[in-house]
Amino acid sequence: MEENRDKELDVFLKKNIKEIRLEEPSSNFTTIVFSKIETLQTKDAYVHKPLISKWGWGLIGLLVVGITFFLFDSGALQESWFKYSKLEFFTKLSIFDGLNFISNTMVYGFVALVIFIYVQIFVLKRYFLNTYQIK
């Protein structure tokens, strides 16, 4: 009984619902979708390539380490070399002696400011990268 009634209802709804049409999207729907796909493809074409690749950095690192070891090993670099170099001059400098008027609070404030600026650089960099979707 219940099943028959449901079947009748099914027929009734099929007839009446089928009569109404599906919703109509905008007339330029397909064109808009295609322009979105095109934009996507253009974005994909701009692939960011670093100037020096990871392999390049690895090679440079190896070279630096290799040269350093070679110089130490061959005796070209010796402790005495630093002793007589002009670098010794810098140890005699006392540039901070003239800055006694700067209080600790000012130093802390300045350090905090520098940290905030560094944080902002990373935040802004990420924001712009996301905005322009550089992949």
């Binding site: 919703e23 109509e24 729907f29």
Partner: peptide
């Protein structure tokens, strides 16, 4: 050819 698929199904997807 994707246009054919869009035109075929856009009404139902939109509905």
């Amino acid at each position: 050819s994707f246009a054919v698929l869009i035109d075929r199904y856009k009404h139902m997807v939109y509905t």
